[in-house]
Write a protein that binds this DNA or RNA. Sequence first.
DNA 1: GCTAACCCTTCCATAGGCGC
DNA 2: GCGCCTATGGAAGGGTTAGC
Length: 251
Amino acid sequence: MIRGSFIFLDKVGYKTERNIWLQGIHSWNDFLAKTKIDGMSLMRKRFYDSKILKAKKNLYNDNSCYFTNILPFSEQYRLYNYFKDQACFLDVETTGYYGDITMVGLYNGYDTKTLVRGYNLNKDLLLQELKKYKLIITYNGASFDFPVIRKYFNIYLRQPHVDLKIVCQKLGLRGGLKYIEKALQIKRSDDVEGMRGEDAVYLWWQWRTTRNRKYLDLLKLYNEEDVINLKTIADKLIPVLWKKIKGCVYD
DNA sequence: GCTAACCCTTCCATAGGCGC
DNA sequence: GCGCCTATGGAAGGGTTAGC
């Protein structure tokens, strides 16, 4: 996926990338093996060769951060296949819109980890956890989770970030996370079925005022299912989107 | 080598969507 | 309700190609 991408090159947009694919060039190695590419001067080709070699080197060194700034934000999903085993699915719960963070859920594809305010949620631990990963995946995280983390903890993440809302929108799936889950027939457990973000706020206040553990456990379950479902969505939709983008070559 | 035409990217402004 | 993103459309500018 990433090794068949050229959109990170200067002055290369969707049309130029498509033009490259149309010439039978589907990987960085294909590009480097060609001496001439239609629509591209030799000087430019040589310039792009050096950029591709640099990208190859960084990819093989697992330096995902190299791609954070050179790949357009909406195209960072192209890193998913390569870094999926080193990716973290993240979801933040708060006391309301841009309120205080109450919970941060993390999922690495095997285990979930929940950081809870008043227990184990602090800047150092969150940073320590996030540093383990090469790629962060959220739903609408670009507009919510990341700004909230920045505001609350002053943490600026360097890893590339895949916002699944953008992946969904590119596939014509518009709506919130719960709508997407329904569309993909992803089931939730009975205890949290039908719950929405506002309910998470309610559960937190119930827990704070009553100290009844069942409210906190339910909120944790809701958050865990959020992050686990992010992986299911990513696994289902990202290959479909890539196929769709590449498919345009054969239109 | 120069020039014009074409193509494509970038930039800007605006509107709308989504998280809790 | 806030913050950030995408989508869209138009204008401007740069790169490439083709013709002379």
